[in-house]
Amino acid sequence: MFDKEMTEKNSVAPGHNACSGCGLVLAARLVLNAAGKDIIVTTATGCLEVTTTNYPHSAWRVPWIHSLFENSSAVASGIEAALKAQGKADKIKVISQGGDGATADIGMMCLSGMFERGHDILYVCYDNEAYMNTGIQRSSLTPFDASTSTTPFGKYSFGNPTNKKDMPAIAAAHHIPYIATASVAYPQDIEKKVKKALQIKGPKYLQLHAPCPLGWGFKTAYSIKIAKLAVQTGLYPLFEMENGVITSRKKLARVLPVEAYLKEQTRFKHLFVSEDGKKELERIQAMANENIKKFGLA
């Protein structure tokens, strides 16, 4: 079929204003294509929202709503309740989307409420590891030592001083039935996890690593390559957790040193210029090693 028409099946249409090489909008298309057409989608304020809904142009081919920055999951809760009341909850699935800031920072309260109340919703956190829409400020999912516009590298700083908040563990503490991490580097894996999640009743959490060429500082062509390196170094472990038990993990055929991932990105380049930087790299390697051990990746 040598035909443009197949692109019309995408739930996210082209013509949106996401940057060239954007990992986020790519991730959203993969998620929603896997979810099918019988869905209602909520989205938090952020890059995904502003780049796709500049009036009069909407990129969404599925019913979609944006309300505020922090309430994507609460709005989704209301939609799910309405579908239940209307007797449509079995047919129509609700997907709630947000970036890392909207999920792990400002939207944390609403998300915890959605998990705890047991709504039948798939929540997808698109993790590009900073507030990209406002100009690359750090969020609580920004990795250790990343230089951002509010945690800049400087004479007295190696960048972001804290580790990524462990969102999957926080989700797990709510005893929800399905938690998974995924990466744009593995599109088929995303499809598999979304389809599986939507078969499960109750709240589901999917955290999807989505590189940002502009915010992380790499060539637009490298979005997939960088995402893959994050997985291959053990810095972004991919796993599924069902009912509190880890049921799958992406095994690494060959574990790469963290430098392979970090050196490709401007946000970490300051780690490669001094002796002190080497110590920082050792700390980051230790984090990767810990992940590899914890999830049994090697």
């Binding site: 013509g15 500049n54 909407s58 990129a59």
Partner: peptide, 17 residues
Amino acid sequence: LYGEPGSSVQNKTGSWR
């Protein structure tokens, strides 16, 4: 203001290239 589904196709981003 509601958006029509997929109406972003009117925005030809090929010119960015």
